[in-house]
Design a protein around this nucleic acid. Structure first.
Lengths: 226, 226
DNA sequence: CGTTTGTCGATTGTCGACAATTTCCGGCGA
DNA sequence: TCGCCGGAAATTGTCGACAATCGACAAACG
Protein backbone atom coordinates (compact mmCIF):
# COMPACT_ATOMS: atom_id res chain seq x y z
CA UNK A 1 0.00 0.00 0.00
CA UNK A 2 1.34 3.39 -0.91
CA UNK A 3 -0.02 6.06 1.35
CA UNK A 4 0.95 9.63 0.89
CA UNK A 5 2.35 11.45 3.86
CA UNK A 6 -0.36 13.65 5.21
CA UNK A 7 0.20 17.36 5.34
CA UNK A 8 1.58 17.98 8.76
CA UNK A 9 3.37 21.28 8.41
CA UNK A 10 2.62 24.03 10.84
CA UNK A 11 0.13 26.72 10.05
CA UNK A 12 2.90 29.25 10.10
CA UNK A 13 4.71 27.51 7.28
CA UNK A 14 1.63 27.13 5.19
CA UNK A 15 0.67 30.74 5.75
CA UNK A 16 4.20 31.74 4.86
CA UNK A 17 4.05 29.85 1.59
CA UNK A 18 0.71 31.38 0.72
CA UNK A 19 1.84 34.93 1.42
CA UNK A 20 5.16 34.47 -0.31
CA UNK A 21 3.49 33.11 -3.36
CA UNK A 22 1.06 36.00 -3.40
CA UNK A 23 3.89 38.50 -3.27
CA UNK A 24 6.12 36.73 -5.76
CA UNK A 25 3.38 36.31 -8.30
CA UNK A 26 2.46 39.96 -7.98
CA UNK A 27 -0.97 39.28 -6.56
CA UNK A 28 0.02 41.45 -3.66
CA UNK A 29 1.28 44.68 -5.15
CA UNK A 30 4.37 46.49 -3.86
CA UNK A 31 3.43 49.02 -1.22
CA UNK A 32 0.25 47.19 -0.39
CA UNK A 33 -0.43 46.99 3.31
CA UNK A 34 -0.68 43.56 4.85
CA UNK A 35 -3.17 43.94 7.65
CA UNK A 36 -2.88 41.18 10.18
CA UNK A 37 -6.48 40.82 11.24
CA UNK A 38 -7.63 40.94 7.67
CA UNK A 39 -5.23 38.28 6.43
CA UNK A 40 -5.81 36.15 9.49
CA UNK A 41 -9.55 35.97 9.03
CA UNK A 42 -9.28 35.51 5.28
CA UNK A 43 -6.88 32.60 5.77
CA UNK A 44 -8.86 31.22 8.68
CA UNK A 45 -6.05 31.31 11.22
CA UNK A 46 -5.27 33.39 14.24
CA UNK A 47 -2.84 36.26 14.22
CA UNK A 48 -0.03 34.42 15.97
CA UNK A 49 1.14 32.16 13.13
CA UNK A 50 0.36 34.90 10.67
CA UNK A 51 2.61 37.36 12.44
CA UNK A 52 5.42 34.86 12.51
CA UNK A 53 5.07 34.41 8.79
CA UNK A 54 5.20 38.16 8.30
CA UNK A 55 8.38 38.40 10.33
CA UNK A 56 10.01 35.90 8.08
CA UNK A 57 8.86 37.71 4.97
CA UNK A 58 10.43 40.85 6.36
CA UNK A 59 13.79 39.26 7.00
CA UNK A 60 13.65 37.76 3.52
CA UNK A 61 13.22 41.24 2.13
CA UNK A 62 9.87 40.60 0.51
CA UNK A 63 8.03 42.75 3.03
CA UNK A 64 8.84 45.67 5.22
CA UNK A 65 7.72 46.06 8.81
CA UNK A 66 7.61 49.33 10.69
CA UNK A 67 6.71 49.07 14.37
CA UNK A 68 3.10 50.02 15.01
CA UNK A 69 2.72 50.91 11.38
CA UNK A 70 2.34 47.49 9.97
CA UNK A 71 3.82 45.40 7.23
CA UNK A 72 3.77 46.29 3.59
CA UNK A 73 4.92 44.53 0.47
CA UNK A 74 8.36 45.86 -0.22
CA UNK A 75 8.59 48.42 -2.97
CA UNK A 76 10.96 47.75 -5.82
CA UNK A 77 12.80 50.75 -7.14
CA UNK A 78 14.92 50.84 -10.24
CA UNK A 79 17.97 50.78 -7.98
CA UNK A 80 16.62 47.64 -6.33
CA UNK A 81 16.33 45.94 -9.68
CA UNK A 82 19.87 46.86 -10.57
CA UNK A 83 21.18 45.63 -7.25
CA UNK A 84 19.19 42.47 -7.60
CA UNK A 85 20.61 41.58 -10.97
CA UNK A 86 24.14 42.56 -10.11
CA UNK A 87 24.14 40.39 -7.01
CA UNK A 88 22.47 37.63 -8.91
CA UNK A 89 25.27 37.74 -11.41
CA UNK A 90 27.87 37.49 -8.66
CA UNK A 91 26.20 34.52 -7.01
CA UNK A 92 25.63 32.64 -10.20
CA UNK A 93 29.12 33.08 -11.52
CA UNK A 94 30.48 31.93 -8.19
CA UNK A 95 28.27 28.86 -8.42
CA UNK A 96 29.52 28.11 -11.92
CA UNK A 97 33.15 28.27 -10.92
CA UNK A 98 32.52 26.03 -7.99
CA UNK A 99 30.55 23.56 -10.01
CA UNK A 100 33.16 23.32 -12.72
CA UNK A 101 35.80 22.61 -10.11
CA UNK A 102 34.05 19.35 -9.35
CA UNK A 103 34.45 17.91 -12.87
CA UNK A 104 31.23 15.99 -12.54
CA UNK A 105 29.88 15.09 -15.98
CA UNK A 106 26.56 14.17 -14.45
CA UNK A 107 25.98 17.85 -13.83
CA UNK A 108 26.26 18.73 -17.49
CA UNK A 109 23.76 16.01 -18.33
CA UNK A 110 21.24 17.49 -15.97
CA UNK A 111 21.73 20.95 -17.36
CA UNK A 112 21.26 19.71 -20.90
CA UNK A 113 18.12 17.83 -19.94
CA UNK A 114 16.80 21.03 -18.46
CA UNK A 115 17.65 22.93 -21.60
CA UNK A 116 15.81 20.44 -23.78
CA UNK A 117 12.70 20.80 -21.68
CA UNK A 118 13.00 24.53 -22.11
CA UNK A 119 13.33 24.18 -25.83
CA UNK A 120 10.25 21.99 -26.00
CA UNK A 121 8.27 24.56 -24.07
CA UNK A 122 9.59 27.28 -26.34
CA UNK A 123 8.47 25.41 -29.43
CA UNK A 124 5.04 25.09 -27.89
CA UNK A 125 5.19 28.85 -27.43
CA UNK A 126 4.41 28.43 -23.75
CA UNK A 127 5.87 31.52 -22.10
CA UNK A 128 4.93 30.54 -18.59
CA UNK A 129 6.50 27.14 -18.91
CA UNK A 130 9.67 28.58 -20.40
CA UNK A 131 9.97 30.94 -17.50
CA UNK A 132 9.53 28.19 -14.96
CA UNK A 133 12.12 26.00 -16.60
CA UNK A 134 14.48 28.93 -16.89
CA UNK A 135 14.15 29.37 -13.12
CA UNK A 136 14.82 25.69 -12.64
CA UNK A 137 17.91 25.97 -14.77
CA UNK A 138 19.39 28.75 -12.71
CA UNK A 139 18.35 27.13 -9.46
CA UNK A 140 20.04 23.98 -10.63
CA UNK A 141 23.26 25.84 -11.26
CA UNK A 142 23.29 26.95 -7.66
CA UNK A 143 22.40 23.56 -6.32
CA UNK A 144 25.08 21.84 -8.34
CA UNK A 145 27.68 24.10 -6.80
CA UNK A 146 27.16 22.11 -3.61
CA UNK A 147 27.29 25.25 -1.50
CA UNK A 148 24.41 25.25 0.96
CA UNK A 149 25.04 28.73 2.29
CA UNK A 150 25.10 30.05 -1.25
CA UNK A 151 21.79 28.32 -1.82
CA UNK A 152 20.08 30.11 1.02
CA UNK A 153 21.42 33.45 -0.15
CA UNK A 154 20.32 32.62 -3.64
CA UNK A 155 16.80 31.78 -2.60
CA UNK A 156 16.27 35.29 -1.33
CA UNK A 157 17.57 36.80 -4.54
CA UNK A 158 15.68 34.34 -6.66
CA UNK A 159 12.36 35.08 -5.04
CA UNK A 160 12.72 38.76 -5.67
CA UNK A 161 13.70 38.16 -9.25
CA UNK A 162 10.47 36.24 -9.65
CA UNK A 163 8.61 39.15 -8.16
CA UNK A 164 10.21 41.54 -10.61
CA UNK A 165 9.33 39.29 -13.51
CA UNK A 166 5.73 39.08 -12.38
CA UNK A 167 5.37 42.82 -12.16
CA UNK A 168 6.03 43.57 -15.77
CA UNK A 169 3.99 42.68 -18.78
CA UNK A 170 6.19 40.81 -21.09
CA UNK A 171 5.14 40.32 -24.62
CA UNK A 172 6.05 37.02 -26.09
CA UNK A 173 9.46 37.50 -27.55
CA UNK A 174 11.34 34.84 -29.42
CA UNK A 175 11.22 32.02 -26.91
CA UNK A 176 13.42 29.70 -28.89
CA UNK A 177 16.15 32.30 -29.01
CA UNK A 178 15.92 32.64 -25.24
CA UNK A 179 16.29 28.91 -24.83
CA UNK A 180 19.23 28.67 -27.18
CA UNK A 181 20.98 31.40 -25.23
CA UNK A 182 21.78 28.81 -22.61
CA UNK A 183 23.65 26.49 -24.92
CA UNK A 184 27.01 28.26 -25.00
CA UNK A 185 27.00 28.44 -21.22
CA UNK A 186 26.46 24.72 -20.94
CA UNK A 187 29.12 24.13 -23.55
CA UNK A 188 31.65 26.22 -21.66
CA UNK A 189 30.83 24.36 -18.46
CA UNK A 190 31.27 21.04 -20.21
CA UNK A 191 34.60 22.19 -21.59
CA UNK A 192 35.65 23.15 -18.10
CA UNK A 193 36.31 26.71 -19.21
CA UNK A 194 35.38 28.67 -16.09
CA UNK A 195 36.35 32.07 -17.38
CA UNK A 196 34.32 31.71 -20.51
CA UNK A 197 31.30 30.30 -18.69
CA UNK A 198 31.45 33.14 -16.21
CA UNK A 199 31.77 35.71 -18.94
CA UNK A 200 28.79 34.30 -20.80
CA UNK A 201 26.69 34.14 -17.69
CA UNK A 202 27.54 37.70 -16.75
CA UNK A 203 26.45 38.83 -20.17
CA UNK A 204 23.32 36.70 -19.97
CA UNK A 205 22.24 38.12 -16.62
CA UNK A 206 23.34 41.67 -17.35
CA UNK A 207 21.38 41.67 -20.58
CA UNK A 208 18.11 40.70 -18.98
CA UNK A 209 18.80 42.96 -16.02
CA UNK A 210 19.35 45.99 -18.18
CA UNK A 211 16.37 45.18 -20.30
CA UNK A 212 14.18 45.17 -17.23
CA UNK A 213 15.75 48.11 -15.44
CA UNK A 214 15.47 50.16 -18.58
CA UNK A 215 11.71 50.23 -18.67
CA UNK A 216 11.22 50.30 -14.93
CA UNK A 217 9.14 53.04 -13.38
CA UNK A 218 9.62 53.33 -9.67
CA UNK A 219 6.05 54.33 -9.04
CA UNK A 220 4.17 52.37 -11.64
CA UNK A 221 6.24 49.27 -10.97
CA UNK A 222 7.35 47.90 -14.22
CA UNK A 223 6.39 48.68 -17.76
CA UNK A 224 6.24 46.63 -20.89
CA UNK A 225 9.20 44.61 -22.00
CA UNK A 226 10.06 43.36 -25.46
CA UNK B 1 20.56 68.10 28.33
CA UNK B 2 21.31 64.95 26.44
CA UNK B 3 18.68 62.38 27.09
CA UNK B 4 19.11 58.89 25.92
CA UNK B 5 16.58 57.75 23.43
CA UNK B 6 13.93 55.90 25.29
CA UNK B 7 14.04 52.29 24.43
CA UNK B 8 10.99 52.26 22.23
CA UNK B 9 11.68 49.29 20.06
CA UNK B 10 9.42 46.33 20.28
CA UNK B 11 10.15 43.56 22.70
CA UNK B 12 10.65 41.24 19.82
CA UNK B 13 13.51 43.31 18.48
CA UNK B 14 15.18 43.61 21.83
CA UNK B 15 14.81 39.92 22.48
CA UNK B 16 16.20 39.26 19.03
CA UNK B 17 19.24 41.37 19.71
CA UNK B 18 19.86 39.69 23.01
CA UNK B 19 19.60 36.19 21.58
CA UNK B 20 21.65 37.04 18.55
CA UNK B 21 24.36 38.51 20.66
CA UNK B 22 24.39 35.45 22.88
CA UNK B 23 24.81 33.18 19.89
CA UNK B 24 27.37 35.31 18.12
CA UNK B 25 29.53 35.71 21.17
CA UNK B 26 29.43 32.01 21.81
CA UNK B 27 27.56 32.32 25.07
CA UNK B 28 24.98 29.99 23.58
CA UNK B 29 26.90 27.01 22.30
CA UNK B 30 26.14 25.32 18.97
CA UNK B 31 23.66 22.52 19.44
CA UNK B 32 22.30 24.05 22.60
CA UNK B 33 18.56 23.89 22.82
CA UNK B 34 16.70 27.15 23.09
CA UNK B 35 13.63 26.37 25.16
CA UNK B 36 10.92 28.93 24.73
CA UNK B 37 9.41 28.91 28.19
CA UNK B 38 12.81 28.98 29.78
CA UNK B 39 14.08 31.92 27.72
CA UNK B 40 10.81 33.76 28.07
CA UNK B 41 10.81 33.68 31.84
CA UNK B 42 14.50 34.45 32.07
CA UNK B 43 14.06 37.49 29.83
CA UNK B 44 10.84 38.48 31.53
CA UNK B 45 8.66 38.42 28.43
CA UNK B 46 5.95 36.17 27.12
CA UNK B 47 6.52 33.52 24.54
CA UNK B 48 4.94 35.43 21.66
CA UNK B 49 7.70 37.97 21.01
CA UNK B 50 10.28 35.39 21.90
CA UNK B 51 9.00 32.97 19.31
CA UNK B 52 9.04 35.68 16.68
CA UNK B 53 12.65 36.36 17.50
CA UNK B 54 13.47 32.68 17.20
CA UNK B 55 11.86 32.53 13.78
CA UNK B 56 14.07 35.32 12.60
CA UNK B 57 17.16 33.66 14.01
CA UNK B 58 16.25 30.56 12.08
CA UNK B 59 15.87 32.36 8.78
CA UNK B 60 19.15 34.11 9.44
CA UNK B 61 20.79 30.74 9.81
CA UNK B 62 21.94 31.23 13.37
CA UNK B 63 19.43 28.76 14.75
CA UNK B 64 17.63 25.73 13.49
CA UNK B 65 14.00 24.94 14.16
CA UNK B 66 12.45 21.51 13.89
CA UNK B 67 8.67 21.46 14.24
CA UNK B 68 7.57 20.29 17.66
CA UNK B 69 11.16 19.63 18.62
CA UNK B 70 12.30 23.10 19.25
CA UNK B 71 15.02 25.47 18.24
CA UNK B 72 18.72 24.87 18.68
CA UNK B 73 21.76 26.96 18.04
CA UNK B 74 22.95 25.97 14.62
CA UNK B 75 25.94 23.67 14.55
CA UNK B 76 28.96 24.76 12.57
CA UNK B 77 30.72 22.05 10.68
CA UNK B 78 34.04 22.37 8.94
CA UNK B 79 32.15 22.49 5.66
CA UNK B 80 30.11 25.38 7.02
CA UNK B 81 33.25 27.30 7.84
CA UNK B 82 34.61 26.74 4.38
CA UNK B 83 31.36 27.83 2.76
CA UNK B 84 31.23 30.84 5.01
CA UNK B 85 34.64 32.10 4.08
CA UNK B 86 34.29 31.34 0.40
CA UNK B 87 31.04 33.26 0.18
CA UNK B 88 32.50 36.02 2.27
CA UNK B 89 35.31 36.34 -0.20
CA UNK B 90 32.88 36.60 -3.09
CA UNK B 91 30.79 39.27 -1.42
CA UNK B 92 33.75 41.35 -0.32
CA UNK B 93 35.48 41.30 -3.67
CA UNK B 94 32.25 42.30 -5.32
CA UNK B 95 31.98 45.18 -2.89
CA UNK B 96 35.50 46.30 -3.64
CA UNK B 97 34.96 46.38 -7.36
CA UNK B 98 31.79 48.32 -6.94
CA UNK B 99 33.36 50.75 -4.55
CA UNK B 100 36.32 51.43 -6.79
CA UNK B 101 33.98 52.16 -9.68
CA UNK B 102 32.74 55.19 -7.80
CA UNK B 103 36.15 56.92 -7.65
CA UNK B 104 35.29 58.53 -4.35
CA UNK B 105 38.45 59.56 -2.54
CA UNK B 106 36.46 60.09 0.64
CA UNK B 107 36.11 56.34 0.86
CA UNK B 108 39.83 55.77 0.97
CA UNK B 109 40.15 58.32 3.75
CA UNK B 110 37.63 56.47 5.85
CA UNK B 111 39.37 53.17 5.26
CA UNK B 112 42.72 54.65 6.27
CA UNK B 113 41.24 56.17 9.40
CA UNK B 114 39.89 52.76 10.27
CA UNK B 115 43.26 51.19 9.67
CA UNK B 116 44.97 53.66 11.96
CA UNK B 117 42.59 52.90 14.76
CA UNK B 118 43.33 49.24 14.24
CA UNK B 119 47.02 49.90 14.37
CA UNK B 120 46.65 51.83 17.60
CA UNK B 121 44.73 48.96 19.15
CA UNK B 122 47.36 46.54 17.92
CA UNK B 123 50.13 48.55 19.54
CA UNK B 124 48.17 48.45 22.77
CA UNK B 125 48.05 44.70 22.28
CA UNK B 126 44.28 44.78 22.64
CA UNK B 127 43.09 41.70 20.77
CA UNK B 128 39.43 42.34 21.35
CA UNK B 129 39.64 45.87 20.07
CA UNK B 130 41.61 44.81 17.03
CA UNK B 131 38.96 42.26 16.19
CA UNK B 132 36.19 44.77 16.53
CA UNK B 133 37.91 47.29 14.31
CA UNK B 134 38.72 44.60 11.81
CA UNK B 135 35.02 43.85 11.65
CA UNK B 136 34.29 47.53 11.18
CA UNK B 137 36.79 47.66 8.36
CA UNK B 138 35.16 44.87 6.44
CA UNK B 139 31.68 46.15 7.19
CA UNK B 140 32.77 49.51 5.89
CA UNK B 141 33.93 47.97 2.64
CA UNK B 142 30.47 46.59 2.08
CA UNK B 143 28.75 49.81 3.05
CA UNK B 144 30.92 51.88 0.77
CA UNK B 145 29.89 49.74 -2.15
CA UNK B 146 26.51 51.44 -1.88
CA UNK B 147 24.69 48.18 -2.49
CA UNK B 148 21.93 47.75 0.04
CA UNK B 149 20.98 44.24 -1.00
CA UNK B 150 24.60 43.20 -0.72
CA UNK B 151 24.63 44.68 2.76
CA UNK B 152 21.76 42.55 3.96
CA UNK B 153 23.35 39.42 2.54
CA UNK B 154 26.62 40.42 4.11
CA UNK B 155 25.10 40.87 7.53
CA UNK B 156 24.08 37.25 7.65
CA UNK B 157 27.53 36.11 6.63
CA UNK B 158 29.19 38.54 8.96
CA UNK B 159 27.26 37.40 11.99
CA UNK B 160 28.24 33.84 11.42
CA UNK B 161 31.85 34.78 10.95
CA UNK B 162 31.71 36.47 14.34
CA UNK B 163 30.27 33.31 15.78
CA UNK B 164 33.09 31.26 14.33
CA UNK B 165 35.65 33.65 15.72
CA UNK B 166 34.09 33.48 19.15
CA UNK B 167 34.16 29.72 19.21
CA UNK B 168 37.87 29.32 18.94
CA UNK B 169 40.53 30.32 21.40
CA UNK B 170 42.93 32.50 19.62
CA UNK B 171 46.23 33.14 21.15
CA UNK B 172 47.50 36.64 20.69
CA UNK B 173 49.40 36.51 17.48
CA UNK B 174 51.26 39.42 16.02
CA UNK B 175 48.53 42.02 16.02
CA UNK B 176 50.55 44.65 14.25
CA UNK B 177 51.20 42.32 11.39
CA UNK B 178 47.47 41.67 11.11
CA UNK B 179 46.80 45.39 10.99
CA UNK B 180 49.44 46.05 8.37
CA UNK B 181 47.96 43.32 6.21
CA UNK B 182 45.22 45.76 5.31
CA UNK B 183 47.52 48.41 3.90
CA UNK B 184 48.17 46.93 0.45
CA UNK B 185 44.44 46.46 -0.01
CA UNK B 186 43.77 50.10 0.75
CA UNK B 187 46.62 51.11 -1.53
CA UNK B 188 45.22 49.10 -4.40
CA UNK B 189 41.82 50.64 -3.86
CA UNK B 190 43.30 54.11 -3.83
CA UNK B 191 45.15 53.35 -7.03
CA UNK B 192 41.88 52.20 -8.56
CA UNK B 193 43.38 48.83 -9.35
CA UNK B 194 40.36 46.56 -8.96
CA UNK B 195 42.02 43.37 -10.02
CA UNK B 196 44.87 43.79 -7.58
CA UNK B 197 42.60 44.79 -4.71
CA UNK B 198 40.39 41.80 -5.38
CA UNK B 199 43.34 39.48 -5.56
CA UNK B 200 44.73 40.76 -2.27
CA UNK B 201 41.37 40.51 -0.58
CA UNK B 202 40.85 36.97 -1.79
CA UNK B 203 44.20 36.01 -0.36
CA UNK B 204 43.45 37.84 2.86
CA UNK B 205 40.14 36.10 3.41
CA UNK B 206 41.29 32.73 2.16
CA UNK B 207 44.25 32.79 4.50
CA UNK B 208 42.21 33.37 7.61
CA UNK B 209 39.55 30.98 6.39
CA UNK B 210 42.01 28.16 5.90
CA UNK B 211 43.68 28.88 9.17
CA UNK B 212 40.39 28.47 10.96
CA UNK B 213 39.07 25.55 8.96
CA UNK B 214 42.33 23.72 9.49
CA UNK B 215 41.96 23.37 13.21
CA UNK B 216 38.22 22.98 13.22
CA UNK B 217 36.68 19.97 14.88
CA UNK B 218 33.08 19.42 13.95
CA UNK B 219 32.12 18.07 17.31
CA UNK B 220 34.29 20.10 19.65
CA UNK B 221 33.61 23.26 17.68
CA UNK B 222 36.87 24.96 17.12
CA UNK B 223 40.30 24.43 18.47
CA UNK B 224 43.18 26.71 19.16
CA UNK B 225 44.48 29.00 16.50
CA UNK B 226 47.84 30.60 16.05
C1' DC C 1 10.61 -12.69 25.31
C1' DG C 2 9.41 -9.55 21.66
C1' DT C 3 5.94 -6.66 19.78
C1' DT C 4 2.43 -3.63 20.09
C1' DT C 5 -0.21 -0.31 22.55
C1' DG C 6 -1.19 3.10 26.11
C1' DT C 7 0.26 6.85 28.91
C1' DC C 8 3.07 10.63 30.64
C1' DG C 9 5.95 14.67 30.66
C1' DA C 10 8.04 18.11 28.06
C1' DT C 11 7.86 21.27 24.47
C1' DT C 12 6.03 23.62 20.74
C1' DG C 13 1.78 25.39 18.11
C1' DT C 14 -2.38 28.13 18.18
C1' DC C 15 -5.86 30.99 19.92
C1' DG C 16 -8.67 34.84 21.88
C1' DA C 17 -8.40 38.81 24.72
C1' DC C 18 -6.36 42.89 26.25
C1' DA C 19 -2.79 46.78 26.13
C1' DA C 20 -0.13 50.17 23.57
C1' DT C 21 0.42 53.06 19.72
C1' DT C 22 -0.71 55.60 15.78
C1' DT C 23 -3.96 57.88 12.71
C1' DC C 24 -7.88 60.28 11.50
C1' DC C 25 -11.54 63.39 12.13
C1' DG C 26 -14.44 66.73 14.14
C1' DG C 27 -14.96 70.58 17.19
C1' DC C 28 -13.08 74.66 19.25
C1' DG C 29 -10.90 79.07 19.64
C1' DA C 30 -7.89 82.76 17.77
C1' DT D 1 -9.39 80.15 7.61
C1' DC D 2 -6.03 78.08 10.21
C1' DG D 3 -4.03 75.53 13.83
C1' DC D 4 -4.63 72.53 17.49
C1' DC D 5 -6.49 69.71 20.82
C1' DG D 6 -9.12 65.69 22.16
C1' DG D 7 -11.17 61.25 21.44
C1' DA D 8 -12.67 57.49 18.74
C1' DA D 9 -11.23 54.03 15.35
C1' DA D 10 -7.91 51.12 13.38
C1' DT D 11 -3.89 48.52 13.79
C1' DT D 12 -0.10 46.39 15.88
C1' DG D 13 2.18 44.51 20.27
C1' DT D 14 1.93 41.42 24.21
C1' DC D 15 0.11 38.15 27.21
C1' DG D 16 -1.77 33.90 29.46
C1' DA D 17 -4.20 29.75 28.57
C1' DC D 18 -5.20 25.79 26.04
C1' DA D 19 -4.42 22.29 22.26
C1' DA D 20 -1.36 19.38 19.51
C1' DT D 21 2.67 16.79 18.90
C1' DC D 22 6.62 14.09 19.98
C1' DG D 23 9.90 10.80 22.49
C1' DA D 24 10.32 7.63 25.98
C1' DC D 25 8.97 4.50 29.06
C1' DA D 26 5.63 1.39 31.03
C1' DA D 27 1.97 -1.96 30.35
C1' DA D 28 -0.60 -5.43 28.00
C1' DC D 29 -0.77 -9.05 24.75
C1' DG D 30 0.67 -12.79 21.86
Amino acid sequence: MTLNHIENRSLRDRVLDALREAIITGEFKPGQQLIETELATSLGVSRAPLREALQILSTEGLAETVPYHGTTVRRLTKADVEELYSLRSVLETFAIRRMIEQHNSEHVVRLRTCFEAMLAAAEANDLKQVNQIDREFHDMLIELSGHSLLLTSWNVVSMRVRQVMALLNRRNSDLKRIAYNHVPIIDAIEAGDSDKAVELMQAHVAASGELIAEGWHDDGEGGDIK
